[in-house]
Computed example of a mutant assay.
Amino acid sequence: MNVLMKYIKKLPVFLQMILNISLFLVGLVLSFLLLKETWSIFSYVFLYTEADKNYYEFTEELLVFFLYFEFIALIVKYFKTNFHFPLRYFIYIGITAVIRLIIVDHDDAQNTFWWSIAILVMVGSLLIANSKLLKRES
Rank of each mutant, 00 (worst) to 15 (best):
V13M: 01
F14M: 00
F14G: 02
I18L: 13
L19K: 09
L19M: 12
L19Q: 10
S22N: 04
V26H: 04
V26A: 01
V26Y: 00
G27A: 03
L30E: 00
F32C: 07
L33A: 02
L33V: 00
L33G: 04
L33E: 12
L35G: 06
L35F: 07
E37K: 14
I41N: 13
F42C: 04
S43C: 11
Y44N: 10
V45E: 08
Y48T: 11
Y48I: 00
E50N: 15
E50V: 09
A51C: 10
A51R: 12
Y56V: 15
E57W: 12
F58A: 15
T59C: 08
T59M: 13
E61A: 04
L62G: 11
L62P: 10
F65G: 00
F65M: 01
F66H: 04
F66A: 07
F66W: 09
E70W: 01
E70K: 03
F71T: 04
A73F: 12
F79W: 03
F79E: 07
K80T: 15
T81H: 04
F85T: 00
F85N: 04
F85R: 00
P86K: 06
Y89C: 05
F90T: 09
F90G: 12
G94Q: 00
I95Y: 07
A97S: 15
A97N: 11
V98L: 09
V98D: 10
V98M: 07
D108P: 01
